[in-house]
Amino acid sequence: MRRVFIKSAVSISVLDSFLQEDLSQLSESPNGAWTLKEPNYRDYVAPAMLRRASKMMKMSLASSQTALEQSGIQSPDSIIVGTGLGGMTDTVKFLEGSIRAEEGSLIAPGAFIQSGHNSVSGQIALLLKNQQYNMTHVQKGLSFEYALLDAMLRVKEGDDAVLLGAVDEKIGVLDQLAERMTWPEDMRRQLSEGCSFFVVEGEAATGVEIVEVKISKTEDLLSNLDRLLESHSLNLTDSVQNFVGYSELPKADLPFAHQVYTDRVGRYFSSSAFGFHLASDTLKHQGKPGDFATVIHFSDLQFSSIMLLRRV
């Protein structure tokens, strides 16, 4: 079986993460300000691409281009994206146009076209003129994990380099819905958005290896964590850091040292990609060969995940 490594990583978040060499060195936003720190998209995306692009599309185009540049890969063998909600801004925009339109009158199609969940992966392919495997995974909080599992499978099937991304955008309706559903205040104020893109590859002598990605029933998450580490002859206490995140669940009392990445970048369906990026940077800059880190994601009442990374 081919091993899978992280070649490059780029994230846009509420922290000043874009183009940061080492995310683990990022300082926190002052007073917990939860606004996205966006780059100047004009520096990364052609005006013709930008003019119809939603925030989600802009984040994705800038991050994916930068991740490719940093990896030195011009055209990847696969493009795989995870998104929990897809293009919500365009979906609601077209819905409003469609509902308000009278019988027989025409509706502008732009938002409908962009509302597709695979508009990001498709647009990147179009931009790169890339005719390879193109996939979009949409499974709530585990959208990134399923995209990552697909990317690892593609590498095992023979791909050299896969462009892998995760993105979700926040719209006002989500805040209203959380309030209506009486989400606790501390969860509600963490509703956020962000984007991460990676190039993962099959051949690397050194770097950070993606050892295993495990989907687990939430009730079995901690026992599966023990079992997974044991199968690799590892101990949780030896990990360089355990990065823990929450999607739809309240914070848990955990019996081991850890850092909560969703307290730093907020909660959005694909935020585990940020935790994954954080773990990768921590191992890359502070780890020595053999060191490992975990990303433990409490997603929803039914399913959660564990990602295990190792410095080689």
Binding site: G84, L85, G86, G116, H117, N118, S121, N134, M135, T136, H137, V138, Q139, K140, L142, S143, Y146, V173, L177, M181, I215, K217, D300, Q302, F303
Partner: peptide, 29 residues
Amino acid sequence: LLTHDLGTVTQLVNQRLGFTNYVNTLSTA
């Protein structure tokens, strides 16, 4: 709106089916 997203629909279906190892949704038009 609580059942809007695609993954939730898949999980609703799966509540009758009972898969536990891998429950995923693809959306490529």
